[in-house]
Design a protein around this nucleic acid. Structure first.
Lengths: 188, 188
DNA sequence: ATTTTTTGATACCGATTGGTACGAATAAAC
DNA sequence: GTTTATTCGTACCAATCGGTATCAAAAAAT
């Protein structure tokens, strides 16, 4: 029954201190569980980080997906996703997925695979939104959808990276996303 | 006389494998020097990473500064810096400074300070270029200079980060920098 | 109630980390 | 040529890493 506790402790530790800065020993200590228990439950460190990233995806990234796949205009979705990334308290310490991607080569193979998978899922979600917006005429910037999706993904990632470093990404993100609005927006 | 050798070996190791993925032991091995020699020359690990980052700044980042502070139109400088970041073989593995910034909390205090210093110097260089361009009328986008400088810095950093991950940043960077040209450029 | 199975943690493993004590070898001074 | 000073590297240090063998306690099954 401790599984959820361990996942929660590990998630926050990885999230706040960086995945490569937290040892498995430290997690056991913080979660007040023995190391063999963790190994019995998750197999190895890769299994733990993998499970943590899965949990994170369900808890946090699902909010992004919900915005993108839910109702609302194209403009609103862009604004809302930007707001989630750049302002929401949820990402005060940045995004765990972004941090994991940053140290991907040092993660286990399963976790690396999951990082890639999430990247593809996110890109797919952006692609869906853009395709819809183009079809409904809400957006037409003369930009190919795959490029626009990659661009959106990169800029959201940049904003989350900046938050992880303690910088305020709002102005930069607003400026970057202004290409979707046709004007050059003057910040917050 | 081995100082230069060690710095070279360490720089490339940090650069290609990531600063936190290379141990001091590994560097001694690769450079074929004893560990006490390294400690005699650099004091501790922080001293080594610091010296490496200094070398990197002189060797690599100086090229960026030269472009920004040298002659040439505003548009050319932007293009050239973008080309250096996104296409030049020099940054095939990304940028060592960007990689150090990404793991800043895990670096020694001196190295952390140097990372910040380089950030400020780079931002200052962008600010100078933008102020000049605004004064000469080469650029007026209704964007405040500090924000534009921060934006340029962030986007160049993003491009270098993408290269470090093996992605091609050219289209994304071109799109991001299009706000400085007034059109929405259609890629490479 | 006894046996079996599962859960738990202590205490260890070899490897590697950043860092150093100390003796051998070399260079400088006399 | 002998002595002094300095460079240099082997061999070590404690701490920590991811991972596990092993044994005690609790739960389940019989």
């Amino acid at each position: 029954m401790k599984r959820a506790d361990v996942l929660d402790v590990a998630m926050h530790a990885y999230w706040e201190e960086g995945p490569d800065a937290v040892s498995l020993n430290a997690i056991c200590q913080k979660a007040e569980v023995s190391k063999p228990s963790v190994y019995r439950e998750f197999g190895n460190e890769d299994g733990l980080t993998c499970a943590v990233l899965e949990t994170y995806t369900e808890v946090v990234l699902a909010k992004m997906q919900a915005v993108l796949d839910g109702p609302g205009s194209f403009a609103w979705k862009i604004d809302e996703v930007a707001r989630l990334a750049a302002e929401d308290a949820l990402h005060t310490h940045g995004c765990l997925w972004v941090k994991m991607r940053a140290v991907k080569p040092q993660l286990g193979e399963r976790t690396q695979g999951l990082v890639d998978l999430i990247q593809e899922a996110t890109l797919a979600a952006f692609t869906r939104v853009l395709t819809e917006a183009q079809a409904s005429g809400e957006w037409q910037g003369g930009i190919a959808v795959p490029l626009a999706a990659q661009y959106l993904h990169a800029q959201i990632g940049l904003a989350l990276d900046m938050r992880g470093r303690g910088e305020d990404p709002r102005d930069v993100l607003a400026m970057a996303l202004s290409v979707f609005r046709g004007n050059t927006a003057s910040g917050r």
